[in-house]
């Protein structure tokens, strides 16, 4: 019995980590955020239904264990080996978990003009989409959007931050795909 409170705390902490993902300000990531909300409120009783990163069918598992994002070199949209490995995991998961609609967000770092970075973010999102299609994910479930340099997750102006801002994020939402 003493294990239960610890498990709930773990779920809550993982949920919070998902909630801290600041690059998405809409419906995306709602699963993780909902888990955190349940975990913190009223003893966390409601949080079990959404699951944490340990539950392989959960959004948190997709985001944290598989990895919901891949990174790119400066001014590039080609997928590295690491990115391909991540996307292979995503593709398998997406085919098992068919209820989610998918938006792939492409992003750029701040070193670049606004319009070019919008186009570059679109290239990155499209590279991810093409790869997922090649691995069997239905094209009709996916859309792409570019935020250019408008939504950095890291705010420092050094390569350390830039390298994490040059990304494509696979965002899941219940609804259209269900």
């Amino acid at each position: 019995m003493t294990l239960l409170p610890k498990a709930l705390l773990l779920v809550a902490a993982l949920g919070l980590a998902a909630c801290n993902n600041p690059d998405r300000f809409g419906a995306g990531g709602a699963g993780g955020a909902g888990g955190a909300g349940g975990g913190l409120g009223a003893g966390g009783i409601d949080s079990t239904g959404l699951g944490g990163a340990g539950d392989p069918t959960s959004v948190a598992y997709f985001q944290q264990t598989l990895g919901d994002r891949v990174f790119f070199a400066v001014d590039q949209s080609s997928l590295s080996d690491t990115a391909r490995t991540t996307l292979l995991g995503q593709a398998q998961w997406l085919q098992t978990n068919n209820d989610y609609a998918i938006i792939i967000e492409g992003h750029a770092d701040e070193q670049g003009t606004r319009e070019y970075n919008l186009a570059l973010g679109a290239r990155r999102a499209s590279a991810v989409q093409d790869f997922l299609i090649s691995q069997g994910v239905a094209a009709g479930r996916m859309r792409t959007v570019s935020y250019g340099k408008e939504r950095p997750i890291e705010v420092c102006s050094t390569e350390d931050c830039y390298s994490r801002n040059r990304r494509a994020v696979t965002v899941l939402s219940m609804g259209a795909g269900a």
């Binding site: 186009a119 679109a122 499209s126 792409t144």
Partner: peptide
């Protein structure tokens, strides 16, 4: 649907709009 449009600017005629359209990653 399925496209992104941006960078619009008017032509001197005030009627024609020139802009960028992205589809399938190409702009």
């Amino acid at each position: 649907p399925g496209t992104m449009t941006f960078a619009p600017r008017f032509a001197p005629d005030g009627r024609t709009v020139v802009f960028s359209l992205e589809q399938g990653g190409n702009t």
